[in-house]
Nucleic acid binder design. Structure first.
Length: 528
RNA sequence: GGCGCAGUAGCCAAGGGGCUAAGGCGGGAGUCUGCAAAACUCCUAUUCGGCGGUUCGAGUCCGCCCUGCGCCUCCA
C-alpha cells in the first residue's frame, strides 16, 4: 500500500492559510456531503483523523480533453483546497485508464502505438488542467504501470470463488455479491431483463463483467496466470484506489454517468475482495456538462475542447462559469451562458481591481492580515458606516465556510463574494467622495482585499486578468490608445467636449471602451 | 421496459418542514459625473411543473401525473 511508486506525483503543498480573522475563528460548520449510496446528505468526518483520502475517477486518454473533463477535476481541486483551509491533510488520487478498447481502436486507426497515444493525451490533459489553474492530484496512477496489482486482485477474487476464468478471460460472478446494484438502485433481475446486448455465452450470467480480457492479435498484452491479456474496465480503479488510499477511504468521485456500471462494479469487486464494507464512505457524483440540451460526449461529437476555450477566454472566467452551478446539477455550456457569466465575472473582478487601485493610491497594504486586536481597534476608530462595513467583512469567512460546508456549494460561496463586492464598492466610493479616508478605513479595505484573494483567488480561483487595458494586446496598441487618451485628456481640460466625445466614440466603434474616473481615464476591450 | 436526476422571476441559479424565497444577468427609477460608461441605492417571484395527501405549518416530506435529461453499450 505504499504510494512511493506513483508515476507522476506532485508534491503536496502546505495549505498556507493565513492566521488571524481571515481564517475561520468562529465555529466551523459541520461538513455535509451528499452520498449517492444513501441518496442523502450525511455529516462528513474523515475515517482517519485529520486526513481526507479522495479518489477521483480520471479520464481515458484517447482524445483531447474537453470541458466535461474539467468539471470534476476543478471541483475536486476546489474541494481539496477548501478542506485544507479547514485544516485537513488531503490525499487526492486521480487515475489514467491508459489501457482500454477505445485507445487500442484509435491507435490502430492511426497506426500508432496505443501506450504512446495514451501517454500523449495524458500529457495534453494535464497541461489543459494546469492552464485552467487546477491544482493537480497527489498521484496520477496509470493502469499500464499497475498490472501486477491488478493481477493480484483478480487472483484473490478467483481464490475466493467470486471470479472465474474461461478461455483466458476472467469474469466477476455477480451472483456471488448479494449487494450488487446497491449504488445505482438496480435489482439484478431487472438488469438482466433489460439486457439489450448479446451476452457472451461463456458467462454464467449476462451481468457478469470482465476483469481480464485475453489478448487478441496486435493488442497490447501482459503475461498473467490466465495467459497474455489486459485488464477489463473497472478493476483498475479498485486496485489502484486500494493501493494508494487503503480500504474504506473517504470520497470516491466521478461523473454521474459512471454510477452504473463502473462504480457499481467497483464496489462489487472491492468489497468482495476485501470482505469488508464500505469500500468507499462517500460516493460523490458530479452532474454532466451539456451542450444545448444534450450531454457533451466524445461519442456524440459535440465536445468543446479546453484548448479552444482557453484561446478565447481567461481561465478564471471558465472556472467562474463552472463553479456558478452546484456540482451535482447539470450544467449547460453555450456561448450565451459564457456571455452572461462574463458580465457577472467582470463585476466581481472590477471590484477587486478598483480596491487594489484605491489601496495603491492611499498607501494601504494590499492583503494586510489582521488579528482580532486590529478588528477591535478598527471598530473603535471607525464611524458608523465604517463599523457597519466591518461587521459585514468579519462575517465573510463564516458565511463562505457555511456555503462550502453544505455539500461544497460553490454557487452559494460565490454569492458571498458578490455581497462582499457590492459592500466594498459602496464603502470605497463613499470614502473617495468624502476625501482623506481615515487610516483605519484604509486598513479595513486592505483586509477586504485579503478576503478576496483568499476566497476568490486562492480557494475558488475565479479572480484575475481583466485589468484596465487589455493584457493580451500588443504593447503598441496600449501605447496608441494611451496616446489618444492623452489627447482626449487635454481636450477635456479645455472643455472641448466635442473632441473628447469624438475620440471616445471612435474608439468605441473599434471595440475599445473608455471610462472616466476621478483618477483619470482607463480603457478596456468591449465584450466580444 | 427498469433505475436515477431535475423542473424556483424574462434568463442563469442557491435554498430542501416555520425568520421578508440567496446571488448573478437583464429591465425600470434615482445618485454621482461635462455627457457617457462604471459603480452605488431602490424596485422587478403573495410564490417554487400539475393534482391530491401528511402536518398547527410544505418549493421543502409522501403518492400520482406532465415535461426534460442521464444510465441500463464506451463516456467526467
Amino acid at each position: 500500500m505504499s504510494p512511493k511508486t506513483a508515476p507522476t506525483a506532485s508534491s503536496p503543498q502546505k495549505a498556507g492559510l493565513p492566521a488571524g480573522w481571515l481564517a475561520l475563528e468562529r465555529t466551523p460548520s459541520p461538513i455535509r456531503v451528499y452520498n449517492t449510496l444513501s441518496r442523502s446528505k450525511g455529516v462528513f468526518e474523515p475515517a482517519e483523523a485529520g486526513h481526507v483520502r479522495i479518489y477521483a475517477c480520471g479520464v481515458t486518454p484517447y482524445a483531447e480533453a474537453h470541458i466535461g473533463h474539467a468539471r470534476p477535476a476543478l471541483i475536486w481541486s476546489v474541494i481539496r483546497k477548501y478542506l485544507e483551509w479547514r485544516g485537513y491533510r488531503v490525499t487526492l488520487v486521480q487515475n489514467f485508464t491508459d489501457v482500454d478498447d477505445k485507445i487500442i481502436q484509435r491507435a490502430r486507426e492511426r497506426g500508432e502505438d496505443p501506450v504512446e497515444l495514451a501517454a500523449r493525451y495524458s500529457e495534453q490533459y494535464l497541461s489543459a488542467m494546469r492552464r485552467l489553474g487546477i491544482r493537480g492530484a497527489d498521484y496520477y496512477p496509470k493502469v499500464s504501470q499497475h498490472i501486477p496489482d491488478i493481477i493480484a486482485m483478480i487472483s484473490g477474487l478467483i481464490e475466493r470463488g467470486i471470479a472465474y476464468e474461461v478461455g483466458g478471460d476472467v469474469f466477476f460472478d455477480v451472483s456471488r455479491f448479494p449487494d450488487y446494484g446497491k449504488l445505482s438502485g438496480q435489482r439484478l433481475e431487472e438488469l438482466m431483463a433489460g439486457t439489450r446486448f448479446e451476452a457472451d455465452e461463456r458467462k454464467r450470467s449476462p451481468m457478469d463483467f470482465a476483469l481480464w480480457k485475453a489478448a487478441k492479435p496486435g493488442e497490447p498484452a501482459w503475461e498473467s496466470p490466465w495467459g497474455p491479456g489486459r485488464p477489463g474496465w473497472h478493476i483498475e480503479c479498485s486496485a489502484m484506489s486500494l493501493k494508494y488510499l487503503g480500504n474504506g477511504f473517504d470520497f470516491h468521485g466521478g461523473g454521474m454517468d459512471l454510477v452504473f456500471p463502473h462504480h457499481e462494479n467497483e464496489i462489487a469487486q472491492s468489497e468482495a475482495y476485501t470482505g469488508q464494507q464500505p469500500f468507499v464512505r462517500f460516493w460523490v457524483h458530479n452532474g454532466l456538462v451539456n451542450m444545448g440540451a444534450e450531454k457533451m460526449s466524445k461519442s456524440l461529437g459535440n465536445v468543446v475542447s479546453i484548448d479552444e476555450l482557453l484561446a478565447r477566454y481567461p481561465a478564471p472566467l471558465l472556472r467562474f462559469l463552472l463553479l456558478s452551478t452546484h456540482y451535482r446539477s447539470p450544467l449547460e455550456f453555450s456561448d450565451s451562458a459564457l456571455a452572461e457569466a462574463t458580465r457577472g465575472w467582470r463585476r466581481l473582478n472590477s471590484a477587486v481591481h478598483r480596491l487594489e487601485q484605491f489601496l495603491r493610491d492611499h498607501g494601504g497594504l494590499p492583503g494586510a492580515l489582521a488579528g482580532p486586536g486590529d478588528v477591535a481597534r478598527w471598530r473603535a476608530e471607525l464611524d458608523g458606516e465604517g463599523a457597519r462595513y466591518l461587521d459585514g467583512l468579519v462575517s465573510v469567512p463564516e458565511r463562505f465556510d457555511a456555503a462550502m460546508a453544505d455539500d461544497f456549494n460553490t454557487a452559494a460561496a460565490l454569492a458571498v463574494l458578490f455581497d462582499l463586492a457590492r459592500e466594498t464598492n459602496g464603502f470605497r466610493e463613499q470614502l473617495v467622495r468624502r476625501g482623506k479616508p481615515a487610516p483605519a478605513a484604509v486598513e479595513v479595505l486592505g483586509g477586504a482585499l485579503a478576503l478576496f484573494r483568499l476566497f476568490g483567488g486562492e480557494l475558488l480561483g475565479v479572480l484575475g486578468a481583466e485589468e484596465a487595458g487589455a493584457p493580451d494586446q500588443p504593447a503598441l496598441v496600449d501605447n496608441l490608445v494611451q496616446l489618444l487618451l492623452d489627447v482626449r485628456r487635454e481636450a477635456r481640460e479645455r472643455r472641448d467636449w466635442a473632441t473628447a466625445d469624438r475620440i471616445r466614440d471612435r474608439l468605441r466603434e473599434l471595440g475599445i471602451v473608455v471610462e472616466d474616473t476621478p483618477a483619470g481615464s482607463r480603457w478596456r476591450m468591449a465584450d466580444g
